[in-house]
Design a binder for these strands. Structure first.
Lengths: 348, 348
DNA sequence: CTGTTAGCGCTTTCAG
DNA sequence: CTGAAAGCGCTAACAG
C-alpha cells in the first residue's frame, strides 16, 4: 500500500514520460506490458512511475479503448427486496467472483419498478458505463431483452429466453425441477398437492408451474386452481399464501413452494394453524438457501446452484465481450433434490 | 424505450451539432440545461438528438469533469460470504437506494482477503473509477482507512473509527446495544450468560464485547473466558460455538449471539443437544434479519437498522462529494430490543 | 525499439 | 446568446 502523492493533484502519464525522459507512448507501452521495449527503458519508466506515485486513469483509457472493463448487473426487483433475497445474493456473488478474477468491475443498478430498471440498464450501456450486462432474472414477455437485442448490446440472461431470440442465457431446467418436487411428494403418497408461486410474469414461475401441472397430470392427480397461489418472493407472501391454502376446507397435504423463502412463510402459517410439518402437511422449497437447514423442521428443497449460475453468466458475458464467441449460447445447470425434515408420508 | 440507432456506431455530440446546424458547445449547453440558450435553438437541438438517437457518452464526460458520479462500495468479506449476509445485503440496499435517487452509480468490489479488498478499493479511487467509497464495516486497526485518509480520498465508514481520525462514519452504539441484550437477560434472572461473537478485529465485535463485559460486571455477574466464543459471521460458526458453550459442564443458561445468523446456528446446536429454547437456554441475537421471525421459536434480537445505516452512509458521502460538508461528521442510529420467543426466565 | 501525430467524445474558457 | 479553440489523460497507427 505504498504511496507517495499526497492527496491533491494526480500524476499523469505525461509527467512520468518527462521524468523518465521518454515519450508518452513508451510509458503507455510499459504499462501495457508491450514486449517491444528495452529492459533498460522499461526499468527507467517503472522507477519513474513508482517515484511519482503514478496510477493510470481508467476513465481516460476507457475513452480511447472504448471499453470500461465493467459489467452491469441488473437486479429485477418487483418487490424492492432484491439484494436481500438469498438467491440473488448468491447469484451476484458468483458474478462478482468471476468478474473480479477476469479484471472486470461490477456496476450494479437497482430501481423500484421494472420499467425504471430497464431504462437504467439501457442507459448504463448506451452511456458506455458498462461493456455488457447480466440480467439476474427474466420475464416473459420481456421488453428489456427485446430492446437489448435490437440495440445489439452484449448481455447474458440468468433465466429462460424466447427461443427465437439469439440470446445468451444460463439456466436450470425449471420444468424438470418442479417435476422432481412433485414426483417426490407423490412417491410419499400425497395426492392433494398445493402450490405457492412467485410472480407470474417471471419465467422461473412459468416454468415451474408447467412442471408442476404436467407432472400432476401424468400422475393422474388433480390440478386445482384454488390450491395455487402466486405473489412476491417474500416470506410474507409465503405466509399469506400458506394460510389461504391451509385454511381451505379441503386443504392439500403437501405444498410445493417455488422458493425457500416462500416455503419458510408457509411453514410459519402451518405452525400458527396448529398443523404439524410434516405430519399434517409436507412442505418443499426451491434453492437451498443457507436458511433452509436452520428452519425447524429443516426444509426439503430442490437445490438450485445460484452461485454457479451467476458464475456461468459472467463467464459467458466476458467471453462474448472478448470476441471469443463461445460455442454454445446456452448453459443448463443441473438441480438436485435435498431431502430434509419438512416432507413425510401422506396421512391416511 | 424509443430508439433509433441500430446497434453499431454510436451517435456523437458532434453529429448532433452538425444536424442541428449549431456548434458542439451549444449542444453541450442544451444537454446541461444551460439557460444561456434560446428556446428556438434548444428545440432544434432536442429534435436532432431525438432523431439521431443520441445519448451522451458518460466516459467522455467523466474525463473532462473529473467525476464519474459513481460510488464505490467495499464489502469486507473475511468469510467470503458478504453478499449473502443479510446485514450487508440490507445495508447495500440502503446505499443503492440513495445513490440511485441522487443519480450515482454503484461500483461494487469484492475480494477474498482483506488486503486484496483494500488494494482494490484504493485502485478504484486512484484510477478514478469511483468518486468516493463507502466501507461496509470497519476493523481496528484498519490500514485501509489510514491510507484513505492519507490520500485524502472521500469515504464514509459504516462502523466505528478511531476518534483521532477526521473521518465520516455512521454507526449505532454497539456498546449500548450489547448492554441492552445483557440487561434484558439479567432481568429474566439469568446469571450465567455466554457470548458468541464475530471476528475480533471488527469494531462491531469489539464494541459489543465491551458492552457485554461492562454490563456483566456492573450487575456483578461472572465474565468467564470459556463462555465466550468468536468466529466468522456464519451460521456454521454459530453452530460450532453453540455446541462448545452448551456442552460444557457448567453451561450458561443464556447466550448473547452477536448476529442473528450466529444465533440461528446456536439454536440449532441447542436442538441437537436436546436443550429446549428458551426453557433450557435463552438465545438473543443482533440485527433482526428477516429470518429471525421464521426460526422456531422466533428469535429475540437487538434490531440494528441496516438499511438506514446504508442510506445515511451514502447520503453523507454524496454531500461530502458535492462540497457541502455536512455539519456533523458522525451519525449514530438507535437500536431496539425486539422480544420474541427465544428468551425466557432462567430456570431455578 | 522509440517518438510523432492524431484523436476518443465531451466540456469549458474566451471571444464575439 | 453562440462559436472557436483548447484540452481532460490516455492509446494507437505510422514512421523511423
Amino acid at each position: 500500500m505504498a504511496s507517495v502523492n499526497g492527496g491533491g493533484r494526480r500524476v499523469t502519464l505525461r509527467e512520468v514520460a518527462r521524468a523518465a525522459r521518454v515519450s508518452p507512448s513508451t510509458v503507455s507501452r510499459a504499462l501495457a506490458g508491450n514486449p517491444r521495449i528495452s529492459a533498460a527503458t522499461r526499468a527507467r519508466v517503472q522507477e519513474a512511475m513508482e517515484r511519482l506515485g503514478y496510477h493510470p486513469n481508467a476513465i481516460a483509457r476507457s475513452l480511447v479503448t472504448r471499453s470500461s472493463r465493467t459489467l452491469g448487473v441488473v437486479l429485477y426487483r418487483p418487490a424492492d427486496q432484491a439484494f436481500s433475497h438469498p438467491f440473488f445474493a448468491e447469484a451476484l456473488r458468483g458474478v462478482a467472483r468471476v468478474a473480479q478474477a477476469e479484471g472486470y468491475s461490477l456496476l450494479v443498478t437497482t430501481a423500484d419498478t421494472y420499467e425504471a430498471e430497464a431504462e437504467q440498464c439501457l442507459a448504463m450501456l448506451r452511456e458506455r458505463r458498462a461493456d455488457g450486462a447480466v440480467l439476474l432474472a427474466s420475464r416473459n414477455p420481456d421488453p428489456l431483452i427485446d430492446e437489448l437485442v435490437r440495440q445489439r448490446f452484449p448481455f447474458v440472461v440468468l433465466g429462460r429466453v424466447d427461443a427465437n431470440l439469439a440470446v445468451y442465457w444460463v439456466n436450470n431446467d425449471n420444468v424438470q425441477a418442479a417435476a422432481l418436487a412433485v414426483g417426490y411428494l407423490a412417491e410419499l403418497g400425497h395426492r392433494r398437492i398445493g402450490l405457492i408461486g412467485g410472480r407470474r410474469e417471471l419465467t422461473v414461475t412459468q416454468d415451474r408451474l408447467e412442471g408442476f401441472r404436467l407432472t400432476l397430470q401424468e400422475l393422474g392427480l388433480e390440478v386445482r386452481a384454488e390450491w395455487m397461489q402466486f405473489g412476491e418472493f417474500s416470506w410474507e407472501e409465503g405466509y399469506r399464501s400458506g394460510r389461504t391454502l391451509l385454511q381451505s376446507h379441503d386443504r392439500p397435504t403437501a405444498i410445493v413452494a417455488m422458493d425457500d423463502v416462500l416455503a419458510a412463510g408457509a411453514m410459519r402459517a402451518a405452525r400458527e394453524l396448529d398443523l404439524r410439518v410434516p405430519e399434517d402437511v409436507s412442505v418443499i422449497g426451491f434453492n437451498d438457501d443457507p436458511m433452509a437447514q436452520l428452519l425447524s423442521p429443516p426444509l426439503t428443497t430442490v437445490r438450485i446452484p445460484a452461485r454457479e449460475l451467476g458464475e456461468a453468466a459472467a463467464r459467458q458475458l466476458i467471453e462474448r465481450l472478448s470476441g471469443r464467441l463461445p460455442p454454445v449460447r446456452h448453459v443448463i445447470l443441473p438441480v438436485q433434490l435435498v431431502v430434509r425434515g419438512s416432507t413425510g408420508p401422506a396421512g391416511p
